[in-house]
């Protein structure tokens, strides 16, 4: 398959997603203010229980970062993982599979489109959250922050493509798995509290979720001295692990997609609806 054709596929899929998400202005409002409700509740928990202003600022930094990165996790679960489920139900999946392009190109387009929209939601959560709740960030290294952010997203969307492959075989089971992976991952990855608190064994397992190390590193870079004290590993080490996870998940996603598609073709699950 030619590179040009695949790039056209990436562009086409991303274009639809970006245009689709922005055709309704009220969605922009909801996307901006909805995450703030959840973030605000967690902010007030810490405000009700923490006296030291510096500790409070570090914890609120964590909450705001967690709230903004939650948007990416939701996008990976529902916009990437479960997307093949919706396409199958709507009758589009067979059309996608007939097209002479790589599945990875298709999913890359979805990822880019999803990233574009989700980044808006995440940035607005960070900006509005920090202004409304008076949180100040102590940025120590912009370069490291960028590296952590992009590697986390690369690994995360690799994981998203891996999830998507499940939907080529399964229907409601996989939908429920996506549903199940929301809050437990918020807990395991320490979205709203320093993940180190979970203990060595749990954190070791949780580190396979890119958001665990990504959030921890971002918090260390932005959260001041308490964030460094509560950090899991040195930021450089976390960047290295995230790079490995990125390669690992993208490779696994490629093989899982090919395998699941082949199984789906043999067992006839690619066009099964309402299963």
């Amino acid at each position: 398959m030619s590179l040009e054709r695949n790039m056209r596929c990436v562009y086409a899929r991303a274009y639809v997603r970006i245009l689709g998400a922005n055709r309704e202005l009220s969605w922009v409002f909801f996307d901006t203010f909805l995450p703030l409700l959840g973030v605000a509740a967690f902010v007030y928990i810490y405000k009700a229980t923490t006296q030291d202003p510096e500790v409070l600022n570090t914890l609120l930094t964590r909450v705001i970062l967690g709230g903004s990165m939650a948007a990416f996790w939701m996008n990976v679960l529902w916009g990437m993982g479960a997307n093949f489920y919706y396409e199958k139900e709507n009758g589009n999946l067979e059309l996608f599979l007939m097209a002479p392009t790589s599945r990875m190109a298709l999913l890359l387009g979805m990822a880019i489109g999803g990233l574009f929209n989700t980044t808006f939601r995440a940035i607005s959560t960070v900006l509005l959250g920090s202004v409304i709740f008076g949180v100040s960030f102590a940025l120590t290294s912009p370069l490291q922050l960028l590296a952590v952010f992009f590697l986390t997203l690369l690994a995360l969307y690799g994981l998203g493509i891996l999830f998507a492959s499940l939907f080529l075989m399964y229907g409601r089971e996989a939908w429920h798995i996506s549903n199940l992976l929301q809050e437990p991952i918020f807990l395991l990855s320490g979205f709203y509290f320093p993940v180190r608190f979970l203990g060595f064994y749990v954190v070791t397992i949780a580190s396979f979720i890119p958001l665990t190390l990504g959030l921890d590193a971002m918090n260390q870079i932005l959260g001041g001295r308490y964030a460094l004290e509560w950090g899991l590993l040195p930021v450089g080490t976390e960047i290295g692990i995230l790079a490995i996870l990125s390669i690992l998940f993208v490779l696994m996603a490629k093989y899982a997609l090919a395998y699941m598609e082949e199984r789906g073709r043999r067992e006839g699950s690619l066009v099964l609806k309402f299963q």
Binding site: F42, I45, L59, E183, L187, F191, Y192, F193, L198
Partner: peptide
């Protein structure tokens, strides 16, 4: 897990 998350926030502080 949702409840545990809030529990851990309380415990952490």
């Amino acid at each position: 897990t949702t409840t545990l998350m809030v529990v851990l926030m309380y415990w952490f502080v």
